[in-house]
Design a protein around this nucleic acid. Sequence first.
DNA 1: CCTTGCAAAGAACATCTGTTCTATTTTGAA
DNA 2: TTCAAAATAGAACAGATGTTCTTTGCAAGG
Lengths: 213, 213
Amino acid sequence: MKTVLSKQQCIINFIRQFLVDSGYPPTIRDIVSGCGISSTSVADYNLNILEKKGYIRRHREISRGIELLSHNPDLANLNQIPIIGQIAAGEPIPVPTPDTWDSTISAETLEVSEGLIQNREGIYALKVKGLSMVDALINDGDIVLMQYVNVVDNGEMAAIWLKAEREATLKKVYIEPDYIRLQPANSQMQPIYVDPENVEIQGKVIAVIRQLT
Amino acid sequence: MKTVLSKQQCIINFIRQFLVDSGYPPTIRDIVSGCGISSTSVADYNLNILEKKGYIRRHREISRGIELLSHNPDLANLNQIPIIGQIAAGEPIPVPTPDTWDSTISAETLEVSEGLIQNREGIYALKVKGLSMVDALINDGDIVLMQYVNVVDNGEMAAIWLKAEREATLKKVYIEPDYIRLQPANSQMQPIYVDPENVEIQGKVIAVIRQLT
DNA sequence: CCTTGCAAAGAACATCTGTTCTATTTTGAA
DNA sequence: TTCAAAATAGAACAGATGTTCTTTGCAAGG
């Protein structure tokens, strides 16, 4: 199997990894050996192209003067999100209210990078139990990242508790004159319409994470 | 009158600031001029003390080999995964060539916590384009975390390239005596059976991440 | 076929940069 | 004060490292 990554992409990745590992940028010769390049001039050549394309900035005449422009890893921050329970059809959704928030103790937590949850408050996670959400493209065992809210904008995916049916589900919510339309995320499925009185919004979905073995 | 900041304190601050400003660590002579020190040997002398005290790590014989230890533990368990392209039915699975480079590669990366990818090698990510993977519970715009492999265990979800159909797809793969069974992740869907000759495995799916607004 | 331009190899070069050595000054305790 | 340790100066050295130049291979276009 031949090399899958193009030379320039390999260089970018290598610099990024080197930076994380070492705390300082690589030399041209580090890149040469790290990316299997044959000559320093080839690395130099490609670095110039990468600079022209805007991926890096080079500081001439300065050793290790390669600055990665795309991303500042220092800003990356991991957040511990509590997995406070599971969501399944026919079971109540265990949502923490702001006052009970602090006392919530959860066994599991999820590590999420800052990018997924941008400065948002009231984030928690639920584990999906059962196959009742497949129409929302959510499988058994998936983790849904949630944000605690009372109201949602039209079209946002939210955790809904249908009082009459005693059923929890994840759907896109559209508020229309006489009823609320719950649209599955799967475009091949039909929406369902429910009485606003019957709906209780428990939070909106920020992200879905499915981990396979 | 004495300087308020001790020399060593000044050095630490200078290194930190220099790193933020430049993206690479300072040389000893940068420190000399930045902290008003009179000789490189003095800077060297104090850097050694700082290393002994545990504030920095020095990499000998390496230019700019000064690593600030204070902020690094957070970075340790965060990984930058390159999003190297997109996967869609009817398009080749992106093996980045110089032309796909410009349009797709981007310096786009995904920050993933160590837990999601446990010490695995050859991890990359693809963005799913189109609705052709809904039977695998994967939506338009989802990110799939992939690992390069040639063979997969029975039941693992993998990126498949069907040569005859010229179609890329994500399915669970089961190798059976005379054919390969491709099972959608969605249990409501039927499997398809294909000739082993027609199948090219491009990598297996480690995780699916769907980010909603 | 020839030309042109991109990409790559390899080597030589200039200088950037950490290290080291010795001499000198300052500090702090006895 | 006196002396030893700590800290500072300055310079020279050796190795690390970016740059540049020439040559070569290859593919596209005329």
